[in-house]
Design a protein around this nucleic acid. Sequence first.
DNA 1: ACATCAAATGTGACCGTTCACATTCCAAGG
DNA 2: CCTTGGAATGTGAACGGTCACATTTGATGT
Lengths: 349, 349
Amino acid sequence: MTVEGGANSARPPRAPNIRDVARAAGVSHQTVSRVINGHPALRDSTRQRVLQAMEELRFRPNRAARALVTSESRTIGALVSSGAEYGPSASLRAVETAADEAGYVVDTAHIDHADRASIESALDRMVAHAVEGLVILAPQSRTLEVIEQLSIRIPFVTVHSLHSEDHRMSVDQLAGARSATRHLLELGHQRVVHVPGPEGWVETDARRQGYREEMTAWGFEPVVVSAGAWTADSGYRAGLGLRGRRGFSAVFSGNDHIALGLVHAFVEAGLDVPGDVSVVGFDDVPEAAHFLPPLTTVRQDFPELGRRCMAVLLAELRGEQPVRPGDVEPVLVVRDSTAAPRATPDQGR
Amino acid sequence: MTVEGGANSARPPRAPNIRDVARAAGVSHQTVSRVINGHPALRDSTRQRVLQAMEELRFRPNRAARALVTSESRTIGALVSSGAEYGPSASLRAVETAADEAGYVVDTAHIDHADRASIESALDRMVAHAVEGLVILAPQSRTLEVIEQLSIRIPFVTVHSLHSEDHRMSVDQLAGARSATRHLLELGHQRVVHVPGPEGWVETDARRQGYREEMTAWGFEPVVVSAGAWTADSGYRAGLGLRGRRGFSAVFSGNDHIALGLVHAFVEAGLDVPGDVSVVGFDDVPEAAHFLPPLTTVRQDFPELGRRCMAVLLAELRGEQPVRPGDVEPVLVVRDSTAAPRATPDQGR
DNA sequence: ACATCAAATGTGACCGTTCACATTCCAAGG
DNA sequence: CCTTGGAATGTGAACGGTCACATTTGATGT
């Protein structure tokens, strides 16, 4: 492995530096530095000469040396919640692409436990690696609290901040949840239950809140049955509990995967979706259109979210006007998992 | 944003360095360095004094400075194919966790296009950031070819290499594909078609190859109908084409998402799965158990793959014996999407 | 009491850049 | 022809660590 080059001996293993280039080009090291940094006051002939020397020597500027003196690392850190959730992953990818285009590289750290120590250690590592900014894709309330306590001294953006309006960037979860709930109510459902995501997540709270608001606005009683995780497994377990009960004709699920598990549990019990019970999800993962039945859900544009995060962060790093584009709006996608309730039990009587 | 500390003025904004600590502790800077690096020949009292000074000054060693002189960056690079595929993402997360435990941080670069230029530029960026090693999670033949041509001078591991046996780490795709196919054949299916993933992926080739081998071993004709991508969408489209045809009773799908799309297309056309056609997937994504019907598939342990990648790479970075743990074995998970064929059409006459 | 030697600590150079400032070049103006 | 001043280039000192080597310290054997 790692086979080094040729057969000739006694080649100094040291990589060429700007002084080597300078010597080869017959200029001073500072001139080489200027070429690297695109200084305007440079005779074109000199620039060419230097560029050629760089080419010949296969010169690569040493980033560590530059970082040492300028304390610019061209690195940004990303803190991501460690689950395999679709949303954060998709956003992260967009963050990286955007960073890349701006000449930054992204150091990623997954935080398993939302305990203070592990977050702190992740941040420490980021700081030690001199990240210039931070993107935090860990929408757990606990995480965000810790982060606020820690009072980070470098620019950062979090997706979904709790209290502070600064640093924030998010999808309007509440509006999404309300429109999902409204969709069910408009279809004529009256007993709509909500199966939220795990406790401690910002989205869980926002979506539950949106559900509650819409239900009470229509004069109906909100009913919440917890799932425990964002997974299909936990949706299935929640469905198992739910299918014993009567008295509901629709479920608004915390996300698409939970919805998948719910549908599984319902269908297994002989219930028809959407005949007996309507289900609506959240996220619109790429598979949702092919669930059986194809899932009605709320689409979030995760990549766009990631891009905007980076836009905000980059603007700040460059000292530009702090861009603050509005929230990304989620949109309801109606498919086949929702329909009007079969009977209208509570009517009349 | 980024509010700096107190109200007192005239505080030098420079972070404390090793000499500041030395002065505060009444020792030489070299002694401080020794404390940082855990040098054994140090009086305990001195060490304590230094540690305390570091604490008081909130000293953080400057990694760029250290990197400059030692050329150790404690960074490894990850090159990932840019799709939102479940497998690479899951492995990547494991890679990061493992790296983290070893005190490394991971720079990730997603490569959108498998063209030489974009791969080269990603590698350049990694090299410029002085990564000590590279993990390549981009199982596209094209990517791997380019990488082999480029003859990287730093240690690296790729998941699924083509030719060279070095640097390799993978799941035995071929065995997995064979066992999936065998499962269908053992159920009594004779006309099994394969819907592979997109061309150009190492897995696509290996799985198709495994399918072919098993089919011919049993004396049956392999039939391959392309999907185009790893997505449910493209599986659905393939299913649309497929459901016109007759003469098959089972499908071995390139992955779980394609399988989901296939099932969607079949069920939509009034076919029963597994009554009329059995479907088996590949990957065992966490949702597969809750597809309708729950999907028979081949489980790959992506996190384990990631961990092993890092184990191999770290061993090499440390100059240890090159660990080479065997391939990760995939395992068939039988669920409800496969059953014996309803009739046995080709039998007798 | 003193030589001995390893353990403990100190000294100065160096890694490859950029920064602040000094110097040289060269065309235009008097 | 000489000044003038901006453009082009050069000089030496940081930056914050580690390395190689020098020096001091303190316990040990005689």
